[in-house]
Structure formats: C-alpha cells, structure tokens
Amino acid sequence: MQYLSVHNARILAVLAVFWLLLSGHFTALLLMLGAVSVLLVIWLIRRMDRVDGEPVRVWPTFGLAGYLLWLLWSVIKANVDLALRVWNPKLPIRPVWDRLDTSVETPVEKTLYANSITLTPGTLTTDVHEDHFMIHAVSQEGLDELREGEMERRVRKLGL
C-alpha cells in the first residue's frame, strides 16, 4: 500500500506525458496542477485495484497492433457492404439474431472479441454468456463470416 508498484510507475509516466501533450504549457502553476491530477488518478487506480481483486494488465505489443490493423481492414470492408445496403434498395435487409458459439475464455479475450464484433458495422453483440454470444447481424452473411471464426482465431492467437 505504501509503495508504488512498477505497474503504477508506468501508468504515472504515461499520464504525465499525456498531460504535457494535452496542455502544451510549461508554466509552474500548470505543471503543479498536472502533478496533482496525475497523483489523484494514481491514488484512485490503487483504490480500484484493491476492489477489483484480479487486475488485468494489457500492454501494447506488436501482436496487438497487427490485430488492430487487421480489424481496421475488416471494419472498412464491412462498412462498404453496409453503405451499399443503405443506398441500394435491391439489396435485402434481413436482420438475424442468433447465438454464436465461442471458445474464448479469459475476460480480456472476451472483451476484445465482443467489442471487435460490435465495432464492425453490420454485426452487434447484444449479450455475452459463458460459452456463447448473442449476435444481431444485418444480414446472414455477416453472421456466417463470424462463424467461420477468423476473428476468433486472431483474438486467441494474441493470448491475452
């Protein structure tokens, strides 16, 4: 309790840089205000860690960056599909709402996977359960693509 862990020190450094980038002023008063708010946030984080019980730490890695790039690409593809669906009355709008069985286990993987599905337009996670998600998709194809499981493989490969 009385000492700062390595984890806290890293967050402190990130927050300090963040403050400097956002403020851009280097007068004594503003630097002092920055120090106070950074320390306040650290104090709050330490309190929250105690309640949380099993803190999960995710640090940016190359694997994560690669995954985000791949996610960006699939988001763009899904957006083009959805934009065509909006403008072209001939393309059908046939929403489906069904369960998607998943084998992701850890909370971080689940969070990442569910959020990735929601972020991709055309598919939406409405509920997260132990071994399956409820997915609402604007077309059957979107759901089928998820069932093929490329996104899931990529999430699992990160090993979070």
């Binding site: 988001v75 763009i76 957006n79 959805l82 934009a83 909006v86 709008i93 929403p95 709402w97 929601t118 972020l119 991709t120 337009p121 055309g122 939406l124 409405t126 609402h136 604007v138």
Partner: peptide, 17 residues
Amino acid sequence: MPDFFSRVHAAGLTETI
C-alpha cells in the same frame, strides 16, 4: 432501416468510418 437494431448498425457506420 426498419427497426431499432438495424438502425444501430447504420449509426455504427458513421462512427467507425
């Protein structure tokens, strides 16, 4: 879009791209 859940997808379009 015909119902609320499909509208969510349309809203996502403006925010994600």
